[in-house]
Design a protein around this nucleic acid. Structure first.
Lengths: 109, 109
DNA sequence: CTGATATTTCAATTAAACTTGAAATATATA
DNA sequence: TATATATTTCAAGTTTAATTGAAATATCAG
C-alpha cells in the first residue's frame, strides 16, 4: 500500500455513513448484504448508500457481486489489513505502543 | 475510543500534509520537531502547517509543548494505538486476516 | 521599551465532499 | 412486451475542509 492508497482508505473511513456500512458488513459475515439491506440498515436513501458503497469499493474496502437483481457487498479484510500494516509499519515504524494494541487483551480502550 | 473519535482520527490521517507531518514526527523520535521545522519539511507555509498541526493536536494524534519561542510537536503513539485497536477490534471484530498484518513479517504489502 | 523571531489566528476565498431527487440501467416476472 | 424491483448515475445545490495572506500573540535579546 502506497501513500495515495492509504490516504484514500483513511478518507473512506472518515465518514459516519461509510464507517457504519463497514460495521454492518463485518457483522453480516461472509454472506455480505445487498445494497438495499445496507441502505435500510444505515438509514440512507438508495442513491446515498450507492454513492458511499461506490466510494468504498473504489478504495478496495468492499467487493461487490451482482446476484440477479441485487448487488451484494462484502468486506475485503485484506484491504483493512493493508491499512493496519501501513499505519504500524510505514507511519509508525513498528512502534511498540502501537503494535501492542493489536492483541485482543491489550490496554487500549 | 468511540465512533466520533475514530472518525476524527481517520479524517486527520486522510490529508497528505497531515500524513507527511506524522511521518516526519515519527522519524524525529522523542525529541519531536518545532512548528517551523515541520513547516519546512512538508513545504507548507507556517500558517498552513499551523492549521494542520492544530487539527492533529485536537484529535489527539500530537502533543505540543512550548519551549521558549518555539513550539515542539511530538507524536502521541497511544492515540494511533487506539485507532489500530478500534479498527481491528471494534470495526473488524478481531478478524484474523486484519490481525495478521500487525506482525513485522506479515504478508501485507 | 524596541525590534526580531516563532507561531497562531482570522476573514476571505477556493476546493472538495456530501446530499438530493429525478432519470437511467439491469434484471426479473407476468 | 409491459411492468415492477433493485440499484446506479447524474446534475444541482449544500455543507465542510483547505488555502491564502495579513494581523495578532508570545518570547527573547539588545
Amino acid at each position: 500500500m502506497n501513500e495515495a492508497e492509504a490516504l484514500a482508505t483513511f478518507g473512506a473511513l472518515s465518514n459516519v455513513t461509510r464507517l457504519r456500512i463497514l460495521k454492518h458488513l463485518v457483522k453480516a459475515g461472509g454472506d455480505g448484504l445487498t445494497a438495499g439491506e445496507i441502505s435500510n440498515e444505515v438509514e440512507a436513501t438508495p442513491s446515498r448508500a450507492s454513492f458511499h458503497l461506490a466510494e468504498m469499493t473504489k478504495t478496495g474496502l468492499l467487493i461487490s457481486e451482482r446476484q440477479s437483481r441485487e448487488i451484494i457487498y462484502r468486506v475485503d479484510f485484506k484491504s483493512i489489513g493493508d491499512m493496519v500494516h501501513y499505519l504500524i509499519h510505514d507511519c509508525c515504524e513498528g512502534n511498540k505502543t502501537v503494535q501492542s494494541c493489536c492483541n485482543p487483551n491489550d490496554n487500549c480502550l
